[in-house]
Design a binder for these strands. Sequence first.
DNA 1: GAAATTCATTCACATAGGTTAAGAAAGAAA
DNA 2: TTTCTTTCTTAACCTATGTGAATGAATTTC
Lengths: 194, 194
Amino acid sequence: MHQNLRQNIERKINTALSDTDFALFLSFLEPVTFPKKTIVLEAEHFCSNIYYIEKGLLISLLTDEKGEKHVVQFAFEDHWISDLYSFFSQKPAIITIETLEDTMALAITKENFELAMQKLPQFERFFRILIQNAYIHSQQRIAKTFTDDAEQRYKDLICTNPNFLQRVPQYLIASFLGIKPQSLSRIRQNMHKK
Amino acid sequence: MHQNLRQNIERKINTALSDTDFALFLSFLEPVTFPKKTIVLEAEHFCSNIYYIEKGLLISLLTDEKGEKHVVQFAFEDHWISDLYSFFSQKPAIITIETLEDTMALAITKENFELAMQKLPQFERFFRILIQNAYIHSQQRIAKTFTDDAEQRYKDLICTNPNFLQRVPQYLIASFLGIKPQSLSRIRQNMHKK
DNA sequence: GAAATTCATTCACATAGGTTAAGAAAGAAA
DNA sequence: TTTCTTTCTTAACCTATGTGAATGAATTTC
């Protein structure tokens, strides 16, 4: 039970957890379920949870100054999702999170997060690494956007996540790639011709 | 002395520091100077410092899979710069850091960082917020790249940092904006015509 | 099951930015 | 100074992506 979560954590902190420590950490997590197309976090509201996804699929969206929404992250099984900025700063969220499928997750609240930090020093490290990885990933996405064209980025995305084609509507993939749905349609058409 | 640094930290953690705590923290920082055009950190090497810039100007560059370099950050007075990934993970750096001007900085090593964390719990918070801000900033940069054209991004950049025009060569500004130097030149030409 | 949405495709045309190449300007070095 | 090197500008042409509009398919709603 919860072996995936345990491995997910141990991989990040690069250390095995004792059974008691892991059990203690689990006690701070609460199972939650959301039906498909649920808004889990609305921008401007307060983000009081970090979610570990056991089953299902969610997206996070950032709304820019012009009011346009951009897909920031796809989070499926064994991923973490939240508005870490709002969660840690206790300020209104800048991100919206929605389910694309029925979802089962484990939620840690800010209060439990603080408790866990006190009792389990390893978890401070774990969450710092979580932010750090998100940051590195974000930087590399910028570099990739500057270097590769949309066709290459699309190929890479579906190569690493072939199931997205079944699970994610194309206009959201287009948004994640930074292009319009029509352009993605044209790219797919060109790919098939070659 | 070091009032800017103190304010920089207090602003982030949103708490005043006692004189003794700040003095203790300062004792973990070592002053360093670099002449213009010095490579402070080379990609593939180990990043053992985080720098607080007292005077001067540096850039960090990310090299992508095609070997192209992209300016990730301009760091001038009162900014922090490092390869946080390499610093925390103790793996080879993915970022290069160079001075554009003669620079005076305060450096904290990984060893001193660990000591400071033990003696000064506030600083764990400070560095987590440092990463967190870098992450949020990076995400917003992606959204901006997808929404605004290069001319708008250039205007915004020089509007918030008018001194860049004097201090930073245009080809580095172009790299930061994700365009070629010739394109920036054309954009500037069009701006003057209007 | 019909009506209403939402989503994907296609096309013609517009535009931002890339590419190549040449020369001017500005700095650094001698 | 003169030379050498780096940076910036300009221009002609090319390509990727955006825009708007039409159409059909798929999904949702009633």
